[in-house]
Write a protein that binds this DNA or RNA. Structure first.
Lengths: 133, 133
DNA sequence: TATATAATAGGATCAAATCCTAATAAGGGG
DNA sequence: CCCCTTATTAGGATTTGATCCTATTATATA
């Protein structure tokens, strides 16, 4: 008996998928709304375990707590420094970079995190309307 | 009177420069060895302030606490998952990527973090010698 | 269905980071 | 060169994301 498919685990994974790059706390709040009996430690443990098992990505993004991402294909992220939103960027540039690094630095590269920081179109629009008002 | 050049600040910045991508705690320990009267909160505050002022980079790297880097020119990082070492990779690929993102996603990109994870040449050698032994 | 044990609930605990306030000292003005 | 304003620090309290601990629960196999 290796791994059990528990109700808690299903609810937690559903929450990750239905939210947008949520933090563990955000997942916990969503899960609480569905079943208040599910404990914080279960949420943190399941997220950690699933990330360690490669079922989720665990993202370290400047200025926020860790985020979780069910999208496993190679991609980048971008965070708006105004509204805090994190978005996927489906590009595979990192793969080319990884092989460059292998050659030039002698590392075996296993994984690559690329995070852009900036201002999203929505927040740019808002800033502009304030300026022109 | 805008900003003061204090002895504590000088010691802390020297420590960051003499260490290799140190965490705040590593800086604190180095600083303690020089002057045990300098408090932990001063170290954390100075590092945060200098990072916010753009005098240092603050790196969020998976599986470790924040690291600080006095190198301000655009570059990437790589972390060995065996020994934990963090190295600079002086490449400017991120700049090209940033302008791509501006075009395709409408963001104003201000900054980009690129972190590779893998195994450094030293740790690879050790692994090999164990295997062949 | 019975049972061995993986997984959870809930609280305790840990550590990085921040906050608070009286005391200190940097550095510009006189 | 010294004084005075106030930015900065020391030191401890506090916050918070995350992990750990243990009795209890419930999954999945025989």
């Amino acid at each position: 008996m290796v791994k059990r498919n528990t109700r808690q685990k299903r609810i937690i994974m559903d929450a990750v998928c239905s939210l947008d790059h949520p933090s563990a706390t955000a997942v916990y709040e969503r899960v609480q709304a569905i079943d208040p009996k599910i404990s914080r430690s279960t949420v943190f443990r399941v997220l950690s375990d699933e990330a360690a098992a490669g079922k989720l990505l665990r993202l370290h993004i400047n200025g926020t707590d860790d985020r979780f991402d069910p999208t496993l294909t190679s991609h980048c992220h971008i965070r708006c420094r105004v509204c805090g939103k994190v978005e996927d960027i489906m590009t595979d540039i990192a793969t080319d970079m990884s092989s460059d690094i292998e050659g030039s630095h002698g590392y075996s590269v296993e994984y690559c995190d690329v995070v852009f920081y900036g201002i999203c179109p929505d927040c740019k629009d808002k800033t502009n309307s304030v300026q022109t008002a």
